[in-house]
Amino acid sequence: MADPHELYTFLLRVGDDNLILAQRLGELVSWMPELEEDIAVANVALDHLGQARNVLTYAARMAGPDASEDTLAMERSEREFLNAVLVEQPNGDFGQTMARQLFVDAYQVPFYEALATSSDDTVAGIAAKAVKEARYHLARSSNWVVVLGDGTDESHQRMQAGIDAMWRYTADLFFTDETEEALQQAGILPSFDNIRGTFDDTVSSVLARGLLALPEDPYQRIGGRTGFHTEHLGHLLPDMQALHRANAGASW
């Protein structure tokens, strides 16, 4: 039997990825270049928020009697968030937003597919529901990356700039440590061995169709899974948490 704290840590990593990405995508509502995309980005943001709520609600059951999805989302500080640094990156232009989304989606589809085989019924159920949403997200982001990459000179240049800017944060998605190892040894989590390969195949196929390339710079910034974030999360959190911190326990 694995320590409940390990499952709690793992759930924060999954839930925070979705919570922070939902917040970032939510910032775009009313700012997207087309009305259709405005509705689409809200749909995707709400899918990620729903996944975050499911995961954090489950995590809160391991965090004491006073914990809830709200306290986990709204009362933790920067170093306590365990999301990958990719999802906290700013939206930039539409190309950068779509590059970030492609990388997240290409990771989440095989990740959730694996997680749906977890021996923990709650985890497996959450993942089985989430994978359907992730597959649609991937279809949408892949299509946009191809359309923009194989579009006009300007759209190609911006899409490539987005890929170049976001690629260095992708390795953090795949970071695992003794937390996942212990849960895997306890038979709670499945092996994640194939996720990276599937991600690489998906990304290279989409980029090839969009006449795009990965940057040559091999630098990768990791640390989010252990609470070491880029400067951007510290600006996102006060915005996300302000209402709750000013009116703790408010409901409507």
Partner: peptide, 20 residues
């Protein structure tokens, strides 16, 4: 109706706007 760059994008926009 929706505005979109091509048929695939239009299908996705239609899904997002009209089948929520």
């Amino acid at each position: 109706s929706v505005h979109a760059a091509d048929a695939q994008s239009a299908t996705q926009a239609a899904r997002d706007v009209y089948t929520r």
